[in-house]
């Protein structure tokens, strides 16, 4: 269907991206509308948590995006280092702020869920803590792009950092889980896994799909911007040289 290899060419990518973007936007808007309707009107309040369970419909997709975006970032970084495909580093760069934003949203909505359920805005719950650390990883990644002026150096440094971070994410997750089981206060309500009622699962999945669609739309916009910024930079340099 799509010749992926040719998409690595910036010019071809831009034509493709501009054609896909409106469709992606429409699909995302539809998914979001359906998802919001399902999660606010259709889904029943949880028998234990009441209506606070609805926070899950934005919290879990945000957390999903936080992890998903980091994976995309690391994948793109690896591709950039290995195959030197021109768009990879820019993809990672364009994705990072999206991931950081959703990480922050996951933390904030988590706090809003925690307050009525646990009686406190923040607990050093394994998940919350891991997500907080993930947020720092995003900040570091974005900071290194900021700190280095030269494009190639910035791109490769950021890529190495993204990969080092990616190797570390499971280790951090594992250690935080371990740490947490040692310090876990026994009263904390378990929110995870298969205990979620099926009537809550459909809206959740629709919302996850909607968030993923939103990610694609935003990534296409941001990536085009990065590509154009690179072109502008090259043009400027060519003109400065005379």
């Amino acid at each position: 269907m799509v010749n992926w290899h040719r998409l690595a060419n910036p010019k071809l990518f831009l034509t493709w991206s501009r054609r896909v973007l409106p469709w992606a936007a429409v699909i995302t808007a539809l998914l979001l509308a359906v998802g919001l309707y399902l999660s606010l009107f259709v889904a029943p309040p949880d028998y234990q948590q009441g209506d606070t369970v609805r926070i899950m419909f934005v919290h879990v997709p945000s957390a999903w995006m936080a992890l998903f975006t980091y994976t995309v970032m690391a994948g793109a970084s690896a591709a950039g280092l290995i195959w030197k495909s021109p768009l990879s580093h820019l993809t990672a760069k364009a994705a990072a702020p999206i991931g950081a934003s959703f990480t922050l949203l996951a933390l904030a909505t988590g706090a809003l869920w925690g307050q009525p359920m646990w009686g406190t805005w923040w607990v050093w719950d394994a998940r919350l803590t891991s997500v907080l650390i993930l947020f720092f990883l995003y900040l570091g990644y974005m900071a290194i792009w900021q700190a280095i002026d030269d494009y190639t150096r910035a791109a490769k440094s950021a890529a190495i950092l993204a990969l080092v971070g990616f190797v570390n994410v499971p280790i951090i997750k594992f250690s935080v889980d371990w740490w947490n089981t040692l310090h876990q206060p026994a009263s904390v309500l378990r929110l995870d896994g298969p205990s979620i009622h099926p009537t809550l699962l459909t809206p959740l999945f629709v919302m996850i799909a909607a968030f993923t669609g939103y990610f694609i739309v935003l990534l296409l916009i941001r990536l085009e911007r990065e590509i154009l910024a690179r072109q502008a930079q090259t043009l400027r340099r060519a003109q400065a040289r005379g």
């Binding site: 209506d51 934005v58 919290h59 909505t109 307050q115 009525p116």
Partner: peptide, 10 residues
């Protein structure tokens, strides 16, 4: 006070 701020923030 918890549900709406979460949705609005997002």
């Amino acid at each position: 006070l918890f549900v709406w701020p979460a949705f609005i923030m997002v």
